[in-house]
Design a protein around this nucleic acid. Structure first.
Length: 119
DNA sequence: AAGATGACGATTG
DNA sequence: CCAATCGCCATCT
């Protein structure tokens, strides 16, 4: 029995925004939960982004592997099909991963607010 | 209804 | 620099 996530209309919009940003992440790049949260308004809290990803990980069109914590650490790898799937996907994207952490994170980091030039 | 939890982040000690 | 704590918001028990 699958556990249905209660999606109120309000946070459904939040989910949609998160998915949008995640899908916009170019191949070979990645962003952080906080960056997305900040892009959405920063008030929602980074946890909500992570929580949104939890619901997103079952969606194929949402590359959750490109979303890591501010440290570039693959904190959510355990939530994938397999704990190694996340870094595999990242390596497929051309992202170098070492010790569950993205190498050259500062260069790989893709800030939606900066890259999308929000003003 | 109240407390604990979470794919986080920033600040304080 | 590492450890501990609070803040954030919604969900789960």
């Amino acid at each position: 029995m699958v556990k249905p996530i209660k999606l109120s209309e309000a946070n459904a919009d939040f989910f949609d925004r998160v998915y949008q940003v995640v899908r916009l992440i170019p191949r070979g790049r990645a962003t952080s939960y906080g960056a997305i949260a900040k892009y959405l308004g920063a008030k929602s809290g980074s946890r909500m982004v992570g929580w949104a990803m939890n619901a997103a990980h079952k969606l194929e069109n949402v590359p959750a592997q490109r979303v890591v914590n501010r440290n570039g650490l693959l904190t959510g790898k355990m939530h994938f099909e397999t704990p190694t799937k996340m870094e595999e996907l990242l390596k497929s994207d051309g992202v170098e991963v070492r010790n569950d952490q993205i190498v050259n994170w500062k260069e790989i980091f893709w800030d939606p607010m900066t890259e999308l030039n929000i003003d």
